[in-house]
Design a protein around this nucleic acid. Structure first.
Lengths: 154, 154
DNA sequence: GTATATGCAAAACTTTTGCATCCTT
DNA sequence: AAGGATGCAAAAGTTTTGCATATAC
């Protein structure tokens, strides 16, 4: 994957920084990353990519539909690779982990509401914030013993 | 309204800046305002309140439950007075107007999803973005002939 | 070879903070 | 009178931009 085909299909030159960033987003254990997270991941891999480039590339990827930008609580933008299926998010405010879910009934009601109001909807986002089971019970994330790894929340 | 009772009830001294800001949020024609919007409204009224104070007060109001902070697209925080009934939002990306709606079925499904996932949910937000009927048909906002007055979107 | 992308540094924005002064209780 | 609130200016954090250089096609 990410051999550059998807980039060219999106009308973007397959440059090294773009390939690397795409790969990071595809392969990250933590699927939701702030620009700073991506930048740090590049540094950890020993790659020299400027933070400005990370921002530029992420924004281009968003326009091209390759990634989805989220505005969770906390100011910074968070990016997630777009692998097709739409889903909503439930964020643990203690461990920072982001869980995904999809509920057809919710989607259908949203569609209905927008129709009733005469809106042409481009996008929509549903975020829930709370404490995940793991943090509640054992003080460590339900997902993999993580505790506050990503930078997506304050 | 906003004679200071609600402030004192919230454990906040009834200072002039707080009273003024509360009044602006209560009486604004546009219910969803960025900090900068509130600041400008104060200036327009001839009141001298520092921008830093606006931020401090809005954050205190949020903690006290007097206002709700939204993170729409666009980076800046948007504030709305909390008049009790929870509702969701549908934002016109052309005129910037924010419309509200409430759908019991959506609320119930959300509750159900969180329960299934073992989350204790503190808060949740559902935003839809699109083009409102007015902008689509006549190039002016359905609500009141507005066109891009508030500062909440980029 | 040419157009586009990158890196760096500087700038633009939003939001927060330190500190002296002022105001509410 | 005393504690908390405000204003100003400075700082912090995030994201964008200008411009010379490097890179993909």
């Amino acid at each position: 994957m990410s051999d550059g085909t998807d980039l060219k299909k999106a009308g973007l030159k397959a440059t090294l920084p773009r390939l690397k960033i795409l790969r990071i987003l595809e392969e990250a254990r933590v699927r939701h990353m702030a620009a700073e997270d991506v930048y740090k991941a590049l540094l950890d891999m020993g790659d020299e990519v400027g933070l400005a480039t990370v921002y530029r590339v992420l924004t281009q990827f968003e326009s091209a539909g390759l990634v989805i930008r989220h505005n969770f609580e906390g100011g910074r933008s968070v990016f997630e690779i777009n692998q097709g299926g739409h889903h909503d998010h439930i964020v643990c405010v203690e461990c920072g982990e982001v869980f995904e879910f999809y509920d057809p009934a919710i989607e259908e009601r949203q569609r209905k509401v927008a129709e009733t109001m005469g809106f042409d909807v481009d996008s929509h986002s549903l975020y829930m914030y709370g404490v995940c089971l793991g943090m509640k019970r054992e003080g460590k994330c339900s997902k993999q013993g993580r505790s506050r790894k990503s930078e997506i929340l304050p």
